[in-house]
Structure formats: structure tokens, C-alpha cells
Design a binder for these strands. Sequence first.
RNA 1: GGGCGUUUAGCUCAGUUGGUAGAGCACCUGCCUUACAAGCAGGAGGUCGUGGGAUCGAGACCCACAGCGCCCACCA
Length: 859
Amino acid sequence: MAAIPEKPTLDGLDERWSAAWEDAGTYRFDRTKRRPEIFSIDTPPPTVSGSLHVGHVFSYSHTDTIARYQRMRGREVFYPMGWDDNGLPTERRVQNYYGVRCESHLPYDPAFVPPEKPGKDPVPISRPNFLELCARLVAEDEKAFEHLWRRLGLSVDWSMTYTTIGTEARLTSQRAFLRNLARGEAYQADAPTLWDVDFRTAVAQAELEDRELPGAYHALRFHKAGGAGDLLIDTTRPELLAACVAVVAHPDDARYRSLFGAEVITPLYGARVPIVAHRLADPEKGTGAAMICTFGDLTDVTWWRELQLPTRAIVGLDGRIKHDPPEAFSADGHAAYAEIAGRTVKQAQKIVVEQLRASGELDGEPRPITHPVKFFEKGERPLEIVTSRQWYLRNGGREPELRAALIARGHELEWMPAYMRARFESWIEGLTGDWLVSRQRFFGVPFPVWYRLDADGQVLHDARLLPADDALPVDPSTDCPPGFDESHRDQPNGFTADPDVMDTWATSSLTPEVACGWATDPDLFARTFPMDLRPQAHEIIRTWLFSTVVRAHLEFDVLPWKHAAISGWVLDPDRKKMSKSWGNVVTPLEWLERYGADAVRYWAASGRPGTDTAFDEGQIKVGRKLAIKILNASKFALTVGGAGDGGNGAGASDAGGDVAAVTAPLDRALLAALGALIGEATAAFDQFDYARALERTERFFWSFCDDYIELVKVRAYGGETGAAAESARATLRIALSSLLRLFAPFLPYVTEEVWSWWRAGSIHRAPWPSVPELGVTGNPLVYAVAAEVLGAVRKEKSEQGVSLAWPVDRVVVGDTTERLAALDAARSDVCDAGKIAQLSTEVDGQMLVKVELAAPTGP
RNA sequence: GGGCGUUUAGCUCAGUUGGUAGAGCACCUGCCUUACAAGCAGGAGGUCGUGGGAUCGAGACCCACAGCGCCCACCA
């Protein structure tokens, strides 16, 4: 209990209460509670190597309001925070930050110290050294995030953080993978794969994005066998001509029907390729005939697979044309190929076009077009398709039954807002294959797999060596498989490690399992899983949400959570998707310091679930004003009539005041209206609609300040005694108690501050307000009519340009009998508040208020 | 091309069983009133995207169209 300040202020509240909550363990999770008593939240682990912007503050504030509401409802809230620190973003940040480059073949250098400043040329370092730097940098980043989150007032239990590269995450990912493997859900395949030539890794369908790029149609002259003329074929990728394995047209296309089964000879290279038919060939496009290359795009892959064509790959993992030409070229063909060998595809295209022009096999000039090209979402050059050995996880991409089961999971899940389910479904319906989970990178969870080598040192991919479950997590590049030691590594008849790491989503898809302790803490797991809520952004429904559903479905045959709350984006003030540069002009911490956490949270909570919201400094200012208003109104409610240090101390009831003392009709009317508000706010929160709960509460609160307090002020003042005065004072406290608790999920600092003036314990562990605790309530009409008449009196004074304290000789109110009766019940309050000498009423169908001001007195 | 969302005051947005348009900001006017001048009171401002339909009655329901945004698909 603290004294009520003479001049309440928001200054210093954030720091003071953050520290107090930490000391008191206010948000500590009590793991003795059982599953039904617990509300568990699968918090999104933010990418720590990314920049912090107000978008983070926005969506994490939403989740925190839900967490606080559930906690006040009596649920023990399991609200851990994770840090997503594995994967490419961290690698990239480490490379730039320290000026280093990971080279897997280098030996570990225990004495390595990164350069003070990144040099011009990156320093090549070993994989273990590189991983050390990753670990060092993410530790710093995570501190910055935690600082921001604490300041924002997230009610997270900070003793329960996890990271996606930590031991728990590696153990969970590897165990889950091995179980997937044992059940046949994970498998390895040597197949065409989308490949980023800069990152030198395979990427998954979920990580693709289209970008519009300029390109050009080139009409190539293929030669019919036996000199029977030419066949024109349009292509945007003439550089892949050497990889052409067939020409395809639609089976119904009359122009080509007679040619199916025949062969044509490719320009430049003189290779004989068949003309084949396939329904995906579009007669409307180009000449209606297309060349099939291995591989120019995903349609090529489909044709290649379904028509069982040979492979003639010419693009290497480095994105350059391979040096060995495919077979079946003519002598001139080999010469032509030699000129592009070793070149990038871009360079090769120029050369090939020149060669075609020279040979007369380019029909006309290239016709420029703009077309969508597939990119890795983090990449800078178009993806190539190369054949490589990769791990896959079944996700319904190739099995209708699994696909249907996952769509059914989407129906089982409760979405907020509900329409977001459509994105989940359309993603599943568009899957073209299983989930490619292996990445040729370093800072990730390694696949816990080794392979036998034969007597020649060749890898036997079918002869897998797996670790014992209790040995997990393992790093196969430094740990040895059972029965082998380091001397057998990479030796004939020995073993070699699987070189790949898992896709970052392969770990992130297990956040419920990681956070709830599936691998290490079965007791905790039983108390928290399946979880109650997954809050997340809509653009990662296809990745994070979907993959998490897949993993839980495969492993446990359940949904990982009951509800998914999808948040929108923060947009620039001009309503464009927020750009990095704009979002970083002022950092989130600076906003918090400028206006206080409550103010920023207020803005965030005004963004409805799933709705993109423009950043609005004005709303933050409004939030700050609201917080200040709460301080001042509370001070008044708690001190009026000398009640400041009175009877409602540690032992006060939930209601916050003496319910039995509430006797005046106006006061009882207020409690009736308050009860309705509590019902609305509770219903809104139960549907995760925090924005509605805030809006209703705020509206009520301003009316409470402007109307109710003004109406009862005189009655509640210190000079007054008796039941009427006590009734007003008790009602002020009771209403304040409820209102503070209704605001607590949004404005944790100011509400806690006021609560501490007069109540024991944290407001954030206080029970959510309820109608029963208000006791008997009255007719809300009394409050409504009294406020309206007072408003009419104010309006008259305002229009006459006099002070609101100006006396009124007489007011005549015309209204219905029922409303006049309600007014009569609050007659003295209305007269006191309006300084009205005489109030008379007359029954009338329509409300009419006539106000006669007192004449000016004196000079 | 398919789907989802959205369109209400100058700006940001509420408007949940259909009953004669709301809030905040900004703007204008007035007011030091014993919680609050980072305040209080008041005012002005909208044919609710367009066109149809069912209804006694539509911002809300149905249909079509348009703008904006997003998701998915197409990528020769």
C-alpha cells in the first residue's frame, strides 16, 4: 500500500513496476496446476537477427492482453518466450557483422578472434568457429529483445525462455525427425530441387516468392529430321537449349499431332530430341510447342517426371554452366557448348543468343516481356532447378489422404478471425510436393544421420547409421555413430556425416513441443500440451502454422492448439506495408520511452485481430492521455470525502468497496451499467477480441468521468455525511476497482500503480470483475437520463459562453413518464452538478430541456 | 485466373440479433469548475464505394460491378 501522490504521474512507472513484477514473480508459471487450470500460449519466437520494429510491439501486445485476461480469469498462464536464432538470417548477420565466411573443410581454431572491424575480404573460418560466433551474436541480440519485451510489459515468465538453436530445440527436432523417419514420414530423395545459387542451398515451396522480371521470348529454329523443315519454339531461357531433352505440345493441337513420336534436331548442338504430347502444354502460348529442359521451371520437372524423359542437366550448384557437355551433341555442338561452359546463366544467355543469331537459328529478334520468376524469399538471383539429394517430410503434397486430414485439422482449429482459415486451405490445396526440410547450411539443427562408406570411400546412402535416442542431440560432424570412432570418419569402410541442417521451419514447426518440454519434461508436457493459443502473423500461415499442424498431426494425431489468433501488419502511416527504413526511423524502445508502455500498448490494442493497422502516433498520445486520466480519476475516487486512507485496505472485497452501502438510485444505476460493460468485455475477450473489450471499457470510463463523477461529486465531498454520501463514495471505489481490472490487460502499468494505492497484491493476479460481486444493482435509465439532462444544461452554458459553474434559476424537462421517474430518482444529483435552483418536469412525448440561467450579478 | 478481406466525417476507425448515422484526432467556440489545462464543456462536418433486389423499414441481408489490399495459382 502506498500513499496516493498529490500530483500523480506516469513518469518512472514502467521501470518501477517492471522491476517489482520481476522481484515478486508476478508472472511466474506455477507448474503444479493441472491441464484444465492452465492456459498455454505458443508464443512466436522472434527472429533475433532481424530488426525490432513497431510491428513486433503491435502483435506481441495483442497476445499479452489475452494472457493477462486469462490470468485474471484464474487460469495459470503458460507463456514462454522463444528466440528464433538458427538459420540463414543469423548466418548472414554474422558474416557481415564480423566479416567472416564459413568454410566447412577448415579445421577448428580455438584461438580464433574475429577482426575488430569487418575487413574488405571475408576471413574464411571453420564451421565450429563460425557457429561460435553465431552463438555469441545471438546472445547479444536476445538481450536486446528481452529488454524491449520487459519494458513493453509482456507478462512472460522470463525463466522459461528457449531458443531454436538451443539444446532443447536440437534434441526435440532430432528426435521428432528420427521418429518421422522410422514411420516413413521422412525420406531422402535424389530429385530436382529449387536451388539458390548464392546461398548454395535447396529451398522449400513455402519459401518461394514471385518477382516480376524483364525477360524476352526468343524464337528458336529446331530442325525436323531429314531436312523436312523447321519447327519454331519460343523460349525465355535460350541458355538452357543445351539441356533440352524434348519438345512438347498439347495432344489436341492439330499443328503438332502428326509429329508426336518424331524427332527434331536442336539448334546449335545438333541433339536429337523427341516431340511429345502433354496436357500442360498450352497451345495459346508462343508457337504452342515448348522445349523441355532439365530444368528451366517446375513445369519442366512435371513433364520430365511424367513423360520419363532423360536428364541432361547443365547448371551446376554454383549457378554456372557445367564444364562437361551432355552427350549426343554434334561436333559443332561441342564447340558451341565450350563457349558457355563455366559461365553464369546470365552470361551464357548472351553468348547463346549471339551464336543462334550467327547460325541463323534465331527467328527474328527477342521480344521483351515481363514475367514472374521464382525467387527464394531471402535471395537475390532467380532460383535454378538442380538435381540433388535432399530430405523430405510428408505434408500432404503428394498424398490426397494426408492432405484431406490436414484440411480437416484446419476446420477443427478455431481461427480468429475465422476467414483466415481460407489461407491455410488454399495453401494445402496448392502443394506440389512434400516438404523439403534439408538445407546445405551451417547454423541449424544437423540431421542426426551418418552413412557407411564402401571400400572405395563411396557414400552408401541406404546404409544409414542412426544415433541412440539417449545420445541426442548429436552433431554428426563431430560425434560418431555407434560402433565407430573418429578414425573411421570419411575413410573407406568407415562412415561419413550427413552434411545438411534442417530448414528453420523444421525446428519452428515444433515450438509447442520445445516449449512444453516434450523431449525432456513429460510432466510439464502433460500440463501444457496441446496448447490453447497460437498467436501469429498471417503471412506465415503457409509456413509456421501449417508446418506446426503437420508435425503435431504426424506425431500425436492432434492439433497443436485449440485457437489460432492471427494478427495483422503494421502499415506505414500512408498505409503501405511498413518498410524497414520507415519502421526504423524511431525504434520501438524510443516510442516506449517517449510516451510510456501503456500508451503504446493502447495503440496496439486498438488494432483488431487480423486487421492491418496504420501506425498512428496520435493514437499513442490518446493512450497516454487515457493513462493520465486514470491516475487523476482514481485519485479523486479514492480521496473524495476524506476516504483516502479509509477502510478498504488489504482485506477489501473483490468489489473494492462496501456493496451494502450503495443505496442511492443513481449509484445503483451506475453499477447496473457497469455490470453490462463487464459482460460485454468478458464476452469479447473470450473471443480473443481484445480491441472490442478496450473500446467498450474506454467509452464507459470517459462517461464515468464526465457524467457520473460530476453528478455525485457534491454528494461525495468531505462536508457531506450520511447514507447518500457513503453510497457515492462506495460506488466510486467499486466502479474504480472494476474499471481498473478491465483496463489491466491493456494498461498494466498505470492500473498496477493505482491498485497499489489501495489494494494488496498485484492487480494482474486479481480476479477478473464480475456482475455478482457488484451486489444488487438498479435501473440503468436513472444514470442515462441524469447524464442527458446534465448535458443539456452544459450545452446551454457553453452556448451562452459562461462558466459551467454558473448558476441556473430553473430547468424544465419534458419527457416520458418513465424517464421522468428515472430523472426524479437522481433529482438532487442533477441539481447539484448543474447548480440548478429549481427543476421541474412535465410529461411530454419527446425529450425537451429548457434552461434559464441566472442573471449576471454585480458589476 | 480462383479465393479472402476491405470501402462509413478531412484523418484513423466503431457500428453483433435490420428500426431515422457514432467515437477519437484535426478544426472552430467557450470555460482556471475544490481529480485532471497533457484539462473541461460545446459546435461544425457524412445522400455509409456504385447499381439492383427481398423488407413496412438497410450502413447492416441477397446479387452484380468497381477501387484498394492480401492469399493461392499461372511462369515455355
